[in-house]
Amino acid sequence: MTLEWKHATDDVDWEELSALYRAAPLGEKPPLHLQKVFSNSMFKCFVHEDTKLVAAGRALADGGDCSRPARNRIAQQWEHPSLEVPRCAQPTR
């Protein structure tokens, strides 16, 4: 299995991301809402296994001091303690 990491919103299937949020479970997040918040985030990442979206994350960041993860989601089969993100991490691109 090959994972592909993307940091742009160009090819995101917002319906698929909405379904991932429901499966997480983080409740109902409409596709247009997710498109807005991810598009406005300085740091974001989408992970695909083949063509299926298996993880997504974004960080609230000011671009200068630190960033904070914002309800990042990963498909259950990929959850692992080593994938935890520190509460405050230096912003990187």
Results as ranks from 00 to 15, higher is better:
residue 64 G to W: 00
residue 71 R to G: 14
residue 70 A to L: 04
residue 44 K to N: 11
residue 51 T to H: 09
residue 54 V to D: 09
residue 37 V to I: 15
residue 40 N to A: 15
residue 39 S to V: 05
residue 55 A to E: 04
residue 71 R to T: 13
residue 79 E to V: 14
residue 56 A to E: 12
residue 52 K to F: 12
residue 52 K to A: 15
residue 44 K to M: 11
residue 40 N to V: 11
residue 62 D to K: 01
residue 50 D to W: 00
residue 40 N to I: 12
residue 48 H to T: 10
residue 69 P to S: 07
residue 48 H to S: 02
residue 78 W to N: 13
residue 54 V to P: 06
residue 74 I to Q: 04
residue 48 H to M: 06
residue 53 L to I: 14
residue 38 F to Q: 05
residue 58 R to F: 04
residue 66 C to F: 15
residue 42 M to H: 09
residue 53 L to P: 05
residue 41 S to A: 11
residue 56 A to D: 13
residue 64 G to C: 08
residue 46 F to C: 08
residue 66 C to S: 09
residue 72 N to F: 07
residue 40 N to W: 05
residue 54 V to R: 08
residue 43 F to V: 11
residue 37 V to M: 10
residue 36 K to A: 14
residue 76 Q to N: 12
residue 53 L to M: 12
residue 51 T to I: 13
residue 42 M to K: 10
residue 75 A to L: 07
residue 41 S to Q: 06
residue 67 S to W: 05
residue 76 Q to W: 00
residue 39 S to Y: 00
residue 56 A to L: 13
residue 73 R to L: 15
residue 37 V to Q: 03
residue 60 L to A: 12
residue 53 L to V: 14
residue 57 G to C: 08
residue 63 G to I: 05
residue 41 S to I: 05
residue 37 V to R: 03
residue 73 R to G: 14
residue 52 K to L: 15
residue 47 V to W: 01
residue 61 A to W: 04
residue 61 A to T: 00
residue 53 L to S: 12
residue 65 D to N: 03
residue 71 R to N: 15
residue 46 F to K: 07
residue 52 K to I: 13
residue 68 R to M: 10
residue 50 D to P: 01
residue 60 L to K: 03
residue 78 W to T: 13
residue 50 D to M: 12
residue 44 K to T: 12
residue 75 A to N: 04
residue 73 R to V: 15
residue 41 S to G: 03
residue 76 Q to F: 04
residue 74 I to M: 14
residue 71 R to P: 00
residue 59 A to Q: 07
residue 64 G to F: 01
residue 60 L to G: 08
residue 69 P to W: 06
residue 62 D to S: 03
residue 65 D to M: 04
residue 75 A to I: 03
residue 71 R to H: 10
residue 59 A to P: 02
residue 41 S to E: 08
residue 44 K to H: 08
residue 72 N to A: 12
residue 55 A to N: 03
residue 69 P to F: 06
residue 79 E to F: 08
residue 47 V to E: 06
residue 61 A to L: 02
residue 79 E to L: 14
residue 65 D to Q: 01
residue 61 A to Q: 01
residue 77 Q to N: 08
residue 58 R to T: 07
residue 68 R to V: 14
residue 66 C to V: 08
residue 38 F to D: 09
residue 51 T to K: 14
residue 65 D to L: 08
residue 42 M to Y: 05
residue 40 N to K: 11
residue 79 E to Q: 15
residue 74 I to E: 02
residue 45 C to G: 08
residue 38 F to C: 02
residue 56 A to S: 15
residue 46 F to V: 05
residue 50 D to I: 07
residue 59 A to I: 01
residue 42 M to S: 09
residue 58 R to M: 01
residue 50 D to Y: 05
residue 57 G to K: 01
residue 70 A to Y: 06
residue 75 A to R: 04
residue 67 S to P: 00
residue 78 W to I: 06
residue 47 V to C: 05
residue 74 I to A: 13
residue 79 E to C: 15
residue 76 Q to P: 08
residue 64 G to P: 00
residue 80 H to K: 11
residue 72 N to S: 07
residue 45 C to I: 09
